[in-house]
Structures are given as structure tokens and as C-alpha cells.
Design a protein around this nucleic acid. Structure first.
Lengths: 165, 165
DNA sequence: CATCATAGTCAACCAGGTTGACCTTCTCCA
DNA sequence: TGGAGAAGGTCAACCTGGTTGACTATGATG
């Protein structure tokens, strides 16, 4: 059952195909951590999809709804709905596009940016718990391994953060 | 932006809180790989939730619907629906519980077990692509780090594979 | 034996996606 | 230059896969 044991195997070998499930489990737990903390802090129950939208908007100050949709891997209608909610809640404003009167520039408000910083902090918290467990060096090694996978993806597959299944 | 650089940092440092998103991205891509391959093989479009149910049923030959629900982290009604589908499709049979006439034992059929083997193969494929990229040793290190996180979870949080958000 | 807990189902509802139709504006080439 | 088609965005109808709530039947326990 373990034709793949590497020299660094500390936990008795790795069943082929086991890693994806572990990835999901760990991510799921970290995600739960985030939402638990948000609830503790009395924050609005933003869904993780919103979180990924936030991140994209924070990184792309000239984002449009269609661009966001592509990033999230959902239809533009769905992205439009999300944008509408975030706007209603005061996290972003739609501003006219300077040259294209069909389009709107999506800009985070101060409140929106503050939320992004909070989310980053909470994700970092979850990550730190892992670092406490295995050490910062090993976590960095994991990070680099993940990074290598992601960097190797063709552009089209690098985003896609719609519901994981 | 990089107050956390570890000695082993090969790729220019790790932004705190970046790892969870990377986990999700990698898992998502591997999951896409699985479903693409299933489609290529002309398989029924089973949803990943079904996959996790399969895995549980394969590992627990005396499973019940309620137990499955707990494992998946969904309500028993939802699990019951999933079980009904899998039964309709011939992947499992409900057999009477030997001592509790309320309960049913869920047993994979041969067809169900064959599906589990196929899924394992496809997950292993996705995993192997990662190994090809970073080397088996590094992948094993990642595996062990993930394993450490999961093993450290209290039992109640170790399962939970409902939609990741 | 009465009471409460548990396995499972049915039905109604909800959230967050989807597809399809549509309007407006932009692009581009005949 | 104007007309066709592409692209940004919204509205509406629908689907899926969860949810809660009510219920039946059986098991466990005082």
C-alpha cells in the first residue's frame, strides 16, 4: 500500500491519493476558524465567497463585475449579485468607468478595506496555529510547495474559487 | 510585508495568512482534475459529496445514515437524500440492522466499491502531478505536515466535509 | 410501563448558484 | 460611416443541495 514512501516519511507512509482529502480537511478547519472568530467579533455573517471577492477587489483597484466573475469562476449574474450585496452593506462603491460607459469600476470603501485587513489577520491566525504545531520552517516548506503547484497552473485555472464542490 | 520569512524560504517569503487560500486553490484544482477525468471516462456525474460518502462507507462497513450525516457534517435529512441517490444508482444497498429495527446498515455494492477504487486512482493521479513537480520527498513532507494538523484536531472537527463554504 | 431519546422519512423553505433574454455601449471593418 | 456583432450589466425564472420542522416507529431507561 505504500510504494511511494520517501526518505522523509515520519508518519509511516502516504497512501496515494490521500493528500487532496487532507488539503480539504485542513482548509475546511481553517475556514471554520475564520468564521468562528468573525462571529465572536460580532461581524456580519459574510460568506467566504465575499471574502474572495474582497481579496480580488483589494488587489485590483480597477476591477469590474465581469472581471470579478471570471476571478471567482462564477457567472457575471452571480458576481453581480455579490457586488450588489457588498455595495448595500457599504463595503464597496460602483463608480463610473472613465472611458467605457457600460462598465463600472468597483472600489472598496474604507470600511471594505478594513474588513480585508481583519480577514487577513484571522487567516494568519489560523495559519499560525499550524506553524505552532509543525514549526515555521516546515510551514514555509508547505507554502513553497503549494506555491509551486499554483504557479505551475495555466492562468485560466489559477483563480477559480467558486464553491469547492 | 514579510516579517515572517523562514530560513527555508525559497520563493521570496510567505505573506501571513496566504497559506489557507493556497490550500483551497490547490484542492480546487485537484478536484477539477478528478471531475474532468470522470467525465472523460464517461462516468455518472457524481458530486464530490458523494465521493466523501463513498469513502466513509468504504471505511465503515456498518455505517448508518445518521453516522454518515455526522461524518459529512450535514443533517440526517440531507444524508438520507444522498443515500437514496446512491442506492438508486446501484452503488449501495440498505440492509436491515441486525439488532435495531429502526436502523439500516449501508453497504456498498460491488459497483460501489469499484467506484471507490476508481476515485482513489484519480485522486492519486492529481497528487502525482504535484509530486512530479516538486518531488516525492517534498510531497511527503507536505503530507506529513497536513497529517499533523489533522491528527491534532479534536475528533469532532476531524471529519466535516460539507461544502467547504 | 411510561417516558424520553434515536433512526429515518416527508414536506416546505432558502441560498446561491445557473441559464436565457434583454438593453446599452463599444469595436471594427466593409 | 454605419451596421453587425461583441461585451458589460441587470432582471427573471429555475435548479440543486442544503436547511428546519413535524412525524412515525423503535429502542433504552427510570
Amino acid at each position: 500500500m505504500d510504494e511511494n514512501a520517501g526518505p522523509a516519511t515520519a508518519s509511516g507512509g502516504r497512501r496515494p491519493g490521500e493528500v487532496p482529502l487532507l488539503l480539504a480537511t485542513v482548509f475546511r478547519d481553517m475556514s471554520d476558524h475564520l468564521h468562528t472568530r468573525l462571529a465572536e467579533l460580532g461581524r456580519e455573517p459574510l460568506r467566504p465567497a465575499h471574502g474572495y471577492a474582497f481579496r480580488y477587489l483589494a488587489d485590483h483597484p480597477h476591477a469590474t463585475t465581469v472581471g470579478l466573475a471570471a476571478h471567482l469562476g462564477v457567472t457575471k449574474q452571480s458576481a453581480s449579485k455579490t457586488v450588489g450585496e457588498l455595495a448595500d452593506w457599504g463595503y464597496l462603491r460602483r463608480r463610473p468607468h472613465p472611458t467605457d460607459r457600460r462598465a463600472q469600476i468597483l472600489r472598496l470603501t474604507d470600511r471594505g478595506q478594513e474588513y480585508v485587513r481583519l480577514a487577513d489577520t484571522l487567516w494568519a491566525e489560523a495559519e499560525q496555529q499550524w506553524a505552532d504545531l509543525i514549526g515555521a520552517d516546515r510551514l514555509t516548506a508547505v507554502h513553497d510547495a503549494l506555491r509551486a503547484y499554483v504557479d505551475h497552473l495555466p492562468d485560466g485555472r489559477r483563480t477559480g474559487l467558486r464553491p469547492v464542490w
